[in-house]
Write a protein that binds this DNA or RNA. Structure first.
Length: 1143
RNA sequence: GGUCCUCUAGCUCAAUUGAUUAGAGCAGCCGACUUAUAAUCGGCAGGUUCGGAGUUUGAACCUCCGGGGGACCA
């Protein structure tokens, strides 16, 4: 007994989701889907590790849908697609989460709580939401190996990181440097650029700014003619002026000397500023005033430009230190004008104040020009900037007394010592208090050092944790010299297929071009320790690349007496078992690792550099670390089975995060790309285009959405609404629409099929009816289906899931359901299983089965149900799931473009006819005599003939006739083909087009006859070929005509008495059916009809009595003088009374 | 402040890469169908392609200027 096609009583995708998921788990289908492809070529995919210390959001569904689509697709295409889940477990977010939970700050670590306990808390905390993540992963249908994920805190993982660091070390990529970095005095730590880019970090703040006057020591002669000569330089951080050691000009910028007066003191002066900025600092209204007429206190200050210089002319000029509180080392080298390409004339004065200790650019140009930074010596003998780690000017008592004596002007400095550079850092101050900037500016004003003091609003970064402004501050750090690999990284990047391309060339490419060295250091507790040990003076160091190497070194150290014993004596080197690497046995984290003292080659003790490494190194190293490379799995990584990735996908925010670190590490270690193709998806915004946030309450809960709609419509919506790299305005109405329009239609199509297939016991076991024997409409849909397979396959292959999904959905809605099934319904009804009927079943079955496979990557649940419903009944494909089945192959021989065009023609002609009917207010129910189609070429008639019957039944006309040109009645029109004619005509295109369009009928006839025609205008003549134009019939005089593109039709709207009668009959049928329905008659009930006599209907009723009766199951129709219980029927022009009774 | 992306119907998106009637779906309005029926279908209406200038025979598309939105970076 053949199995029947499942007929579902209701259609709830959320339930289907759950049901199918249960099946998957029971049958362990994910693992089977990998197992069946064992030995096949591998398709390598890398999963970017999320951090499980927060709940997953709806955007994760987006990113993971994309990943899942291509992994499933490639599996169906026969590839072996292994994919390991991963967890990102280190780093500041985790630490801060723990601190918040425990109610402690960074300073408490090691005091109130031991580092050991703290790290234990981190280890637990970071996996807090693992359950939710796993849950979502399963529910949304993302297939990834969750049982053996890579975890970045794992000892094995860390060991690979050490291996990689050592490799980099050996290649000379690691160095220690002193650089200006964003630093949060309140948090006591440097901040990574990633941290600086937490939402809300950059904020507009109002700061006091000053244009300072730097007195020249060696002015050019013309500068000394009037008052004192000064350089003007603008700063938004006046407190850094005391650390000024140079001024910077743009070498190619034009500067001028301007004679004028100081606005505050009225003292005469000659100022040097950029030419473009003169008007920003000197009021143009005062340009006409004479210098001599100025009196102190005048609002308009006269000025006079007296000379012009190029930036390079100024380089090397010397000036007097602005604030002589502290004398820098090598002071003779300081206080000079130096060149810098980054100087602009957009704001300020075109001369930039340089404080090498507080600006990254400053430090760079200063170093290049040999300018010393202004540094102090603290009481421990360290060189320090003028601000301490808490954010205040050093207290004299914290400095080296000898240094204070020799270098500091105590008198001047005392006034400012201990002042915090921002009020936010000082626990005793508020915004309302005078800032250090203001105090300094006031001082400068009095001393004739300030030219202009202003409030200025600018965008400034804040610490995402403490909310306080960031300080650019010099810190000691380890760096990866990524600049060394920059060229190679750019080259390799060109080989990567980026989706969208602009992210690769633009955002990523530009970033590589301007690459800086990678700051690897983090001064925190929970992370991968930097495996570098150094002697106290830093003269000797060792980088450790494995546990084995560490153990060897420990041995030496024990021998040298620096350590008593190896703290991990149970660990067996070379034993890669889970137990051996268990944290109970060995833990490479702080604080344990810090207790290890190694011995240098010369016999000195070496301590570990206290830093942890950037967590982005953790994630970027995952291609290797997830395999514990090279300690294990060396083979499969080196031979390409697991590396590089064929494909990865993450949010666009990862461009400079994970995408970069993967690429950088891979380039430096393996001289290879880490991934060959990448999709960077956009953001998921709320329906109004705003960012989703928990705070605003507009975040969509992914669990709720899946529960309500099911994962399929959610995924389908996300993928097909817009390209994944565009931002998605997430609107649940869109999911609803997808459910209704696409899944609903597909479900109905299947239900229709199942209903009749079960009645006819169709099981697809009969031999396939040869295509040649199937009706044209079958061959048409099969042709379209194969075109679809081709398009979808190409789209998936090109990482264009949106195109694939849209194509599938168009096919299902417009062609399969709305045309094929609708027009063929009658073929499935009643009767025996004829060849024609069989062809219909087979055709529809093929379509549904193919659709299930095509859609499986995007909507894995419903596709599987559909596939199983079909194949369980037929046994055609014995795969346990659509995801274990093969992707359809396009059979080019079944694609018939002529057929597709013809059907399009039928659809167009029907649509035009319906439109004409509407215009004339003639219901479809009213039969009409004929449609006329003008024919200009033979094949046109052929095409229409082929689909004639379809059109006639669609639009209720009796004939389709053709008018050819022989009678000469057609009114023709010429449409130029601009693409062909444009290049031919050039400038005269417009005139030629105008002439063509007004060409008289005779001339058109000539063109047609001769195949070409000469058009002259403006003295230029062009030969217009027949192929350069489209000739169409625009009108048939006396007919009602519609035009659409090249198609023209005319509808005969004359309603003959005969047609009218038939129309009335159809009208009766419709009304009576309605009465049947509203009276609650059964479909099989027979009825008796009485109609009140009326001139309007008598003839029609008499003529079509049989027809009406057969349609409405009437035993009799009688015309009577008056009915007993009349129902009034309104026929627009007249009314008729009728009575319908059960027989 | 810099770099990049983006702006098309009320909404969400197309437009074969420069071609002359700028298209769909949703929503709206009108209607049809009534053995896929809590399903389905048709028609109508809706546009200064963000604004401006330029290149071109021809611009939604290329260039420049300006505006809105967004991302990334300093």
């Amino acid at each position: 007994m053949a199995k029947k096609f499942a007929e579902h009583s209701n259609f709830n995708l959320s339930d289907i989701n759950k049901e199918v998921l249960k099946q998957w788990e029971e049958k362990d289908l994910f693992h089977k889907s990998i197992k069946i492809r064992e030995g096949a070529p591998s398709f390598v995919f890398f999963e970017g590790p999320p951090s499980a210390n927060g709940m997953p959001g709806i955007h994760h569904v987006m990113a993971r849908s994309i990943k899942d689509i291509f992994c499933r697709y490639k599996t169906m295409k026969g590839f072996h697609v292994k994919r390991k889940a991963g967890w990102d477990t280190h780093g500041l977010p985790v630490e801060l989460g723990v601190e918040k939970e425990l109610g402690i700050t960074k300073e408490d670590i090691g005091k109130k709580i031991s580092v050991d306990d703290y790290n234990k808390a981190c280890r637990t905390n970071v996996m807090k939401f693992t359950k939710e993540w796993t849950d979502l992963t399963k529910k949304m249908g993302y297939w990834v190996d969750l049982e053996s994920p890579y975890i970045t805190y794992d000892n094995k993982y860390i060991e690979t990181l050490w291996y990689l660091l050592k490799e980099l070390y050996k290649k000379g990529y690691l160095y220690k440097g002193y650089t200006i970095q964003p630093y949060s005095p309140a948090a006591g730590t440097g901040l990574s650029s990633h941290e600086l880019n937490q939402p809300g970090c950059y904020r507009d703040v109002k700061d006091t700014t000053v244009v300072a006057q730097f007195k020249m020591l060696d002015p050019k002669p013309e500068m000394t003619k009037f008052g004192t000569p000064y350089f003007l330089a603008w700063t938004t951080t006046p407190w850094t002026l005391s650390s000024n050691t140079a001024l910077c000009v743009g070498p190619n910028i034009q500067y001028v000397a301007v004679q004028s007066y100081n606005p505050y003191t009225g003292q005469p002066a000659t100022y040097v500023v950029a030419k473009d900025l003169v008007n920003a600092h000197f009021n143009p209204k005062a340009a006409e005033l004479a210098l001599e007429d100025y009196k102190e206190g005048d609002k308009l200050i006269p000025f006079k430009v007296i000379a012009e210089y190029k930036g390079t002319d100024l380089v090397g000029m010397k000036y007097e230190q602005l604030m002589n509180w502290i004398t820098p080392e090598n002071a003779d080298q300081a206080f000079r004008v130096i060149p810098g390409d980054y100087v602009t004339t957009e704001d300020g004065t075109g001369i930039v104040h340089i404080a090498p200790t507080f600006g990254a650019d400053d430090a760079k140009v200063a170093k290049a020009a040999g300018i010393p930074p202004l540094q102090l010596v603290d009481k421990f003998g360290n060189l320090r900037p003028s601000v301490d780690l808490t954010g205040k000017f050093y207290l004299l008592s914290d400095l080296d007394p000898d240094y204070v004596k020799s270098r500091i002007n105590v008198e001047a400095y005392k006034k400012f010592e201990g002042r915090f550079v921002k009020n936010a850092y000082d626990p005793n101050l508020t915004d309302k208090d005078e800032t250090l900037d203001i105090s300094i500016c006031m001082d400068m004003k009095v001393n004739n050092q300030a030219f202009k003091i202003e409030k200025h609003v600018h965008n400034y970064p804040h610490c995402w944790r403490t909310d306080k402004p960031v300080l650019y501050y010099p810190l000691d750090s380890w760096f990866i010299k990524s600049t060394k690999a920059r060229e190679r990284m750019m080259e390799l990047n060109k080989t990567i297929q980026w989706k969208p391309e602009s992210t690769g060339t633009g955002r990523f490419g530009k970033w590589l071009e301007n690459l800086n060295d990678w700051n690897l250091s983090r001064s925190r507790y929970w992370g991968t320790p930097l495996p570098i040990w150094r002697t106290e003076e830093g003269t000797e160091e060792k980088c450790i690349g494995s546990i084995a190497e560490l153990f060897e070194e420990i041995e030496k150290s024990v021998k040298a007496g620096f350590m008593k014993e190896n703290p991990w004596k149970n660990f067996k080197v070379g034993d890669y078992s889970k137990e051996n690497y268990d944290p109970k046995n060995i833990d490479l984290h702080r604080p344990y690792i810090d207790s290890i003292i190694l011995v240098s080659d010369s016999g000195k003790p070496m301590k570990r550099e206290a830093d942890l490494i950037d967590v982005w190194f953790d994630s970027g190293a995952m291609p290797f670390a997830q395999q514990h490379y090279p300690f294990e799995n060396k083979e499969v990584v080196d031979n390409g089975e697991f590396y590089p990735a064929d494909f990865i996908a993450e949010g666009v925010d990862q461009t400079r995060g994970w995408f970069f670190t993967l690429h950088a590490i891979s380039t430096m270690i393996k001289d290879s790309v880490a991934f060959k193709a990448v999709i960077s998806n956009g953001l998921v915004l709320d329906k109004n285009g705003n960012k989703m946030s928990k705070r605003l309450g507009n975040a969509v809960d992914p669990f709720g959405a899946i529960e309500k709609y099911g994962s399929d419509p959610l995924r389908w919506y996300m993928i097909t609404n817009a390209s994944p790299w565009d931002n998605l305005k997430f609107d649940t109405e869109g999911i609803e629409e997808v459910r209704r329009k696409f899944f609903g239609t597909l479900y109905n199509t299947y239900s229709f099929f199942a209903l009749y297939a079960n009645v006819d016991n169709f099981t697809n076991s009969q031999p396939q009816v040869p295509m040649a024997k199937r009706p044209e409409i079958d061959r048409w849909i099969i042709s379209l289906l194969n075109s679809l397979v081709k398009e979808v396959d190409e789209s998936y292959n090109d990482y264009e899931p949106t195109k694939a999904g849209r194509a599938i959905s168009n096919f299902v809605n417009d062609h399969l359901s709305n045309w094929y099934v609708r027009l063929n319904r009658k073929r499935f009804w009643g009767g025996t299983l004829t060849e024609d009927k069989l062809a219909a079943y087979q055709t529809l079955y093929t379509c549904l089965d193919t659709i299930a496979r095509l859609m499986a990557p995007i909507s894995p649940f419903y596709a599987d149900q559909l596939f199983m419903d079909l194949n369980n009944a037929t046994g055609c494909d014995k795969s346990e799931s659509v995801h274990l089945a093969d992707f359809p192959k396009c059979d080019e021989s079944l694609i018939n473009k002529t057929l597709e065009e013809r059907m399009q023609l039928a659809q167009d002609i029907s649509s035009m006819t319906l439109s004409l009917r509407k215009k004339e207010n003639i219901k479809v129910r009213q039969p009409l005599k004929q449609i006329m189609v003008p024919i200009l070429a033979e094949h046109e008639q052929e095409n229409v003939e082929a689909v004639k019957d379809l059109i006639m039944s669609e639009v209720n006309v009796k004939e389709i006739n053709f008018v050819d040109d022989s009678a000469g009645i057609l009114v023709k029109k010429i449409k130029p083909d601009f693409k062909k004619l444009g290049p031919k005509c050039g400038k005269s295109m417009k005139a030629v087009a105008a002439q063509l369009q007004t060409l008289p009928q005779e001339e058109i006839a000539k063109l047609e006859k001769n195949g070409s025609y000469e058009i002259c205008c403006d003295g230029v003549c062009v030969i217009v070929d027949k192929a350069d134009v489209e000739i169409l019939s625009e009108d048939i005089p006396g007919w009602l005509v519609a035009n659409n593109g090249t198609i023209t039709i005319a509808l005969d709207v004359t309603i003959t008495p005969e047609l009218q009668k038939e129309g009335i009959a159809r009208e009766f049928i419709n009304r009576i059916q309605n009465i049947r329905k509203s009276s609650g008659f059964e479909i099989t009930d027979k009825i008796l009809i009485e109609i009140e006599k009326s001139e309007n209907v008598n003839a029609a009723v008499e003529a079509f009595k049989e027809y009406i009766s057969s349609q409405v199951l009437a035993n009799s129709i009688t015309l009577v003088d008056k009915v007993a219980n009349p129902t009034e029927l309104d026929f627009d022009d007249f009314k008729v009374n009728i009575e319908v009774k059960k027989a």
